[in-house]
Amino acid sequence: MARAAGGSAALLLLADGRLPAGGYAHSGGLEPAVTAGRITDMAGVERFLIGRAETAGLTAAAFAAAACSRAARDDLSDLSGLEAELDARIPSPELRTVSRNLGRQLRRAMAGIHPHPHYATLGAAPHQPIVMGVAAAVLGLGPRDAALAILHETNSGAAAAAAKVLRVDPFEVHAILARMADRLDRLAGEAAAAAAGPACDLPAPASPLADIAAEHHRRTHVRLFAS
């Protein structure tokens, strides 16, 4: 997994929303929050994205970083332990299912794009952050890169969804993403630091409204995004 220099291009590949891994079908909870009337304008979009990055984003980033450091050591023996820890941090069964669907699609994409024996050991429906971490390691990236990739991909994906469910100026959407750049860097650092410790101590930030809205959304007949 040695790489000539940097690895930045591999990171951009992994974090690119155009990676054919199914992320475009999800709004990361933004559409459910709009449907519930909790987001009505751009200020609401920004507050949503910040809260999501600080909770579900940090959790995903920490688990991606933890899976990356294990895969980089070729030690996938306790990935099922990581999966169980992540399950315990997602009270909503709908969000657990979404995470596993996205994980399955990401594994399928990455196994086709850049094959590696690690992908066969991940089980039938691994969580998305676990696959992201393994994919980062396979591409020669480190835990912090894995954390940054999933933070960026999920954050920009949710922001892009705002343009479809609200009347918004796309420049304003990207202005929010620009303002959040330092935050994602900081969260990636926190995630990588946590990943160096035991799995039971990985971050577990709660987001009750995201869980409640996800369960309502699954029962909504008219919706643009799966989640």
Binding site: A36, G44, R47, F48, I50, G51, R52, E54, T55, A206
Partner: peptide, 20 residues
């Protein structure tokens, strides 16, 4: 089950539509 709920001035986004 493992959840850590935060709010207050130090918890950014907690009073936003993703959390509380």
């Amino acid at each position: 089950y493992d959840q850590r709920l935060r709010f207050g001035p130090g918890a950014e986004g907690a009073d936003g539509p993703a959390i509380l």
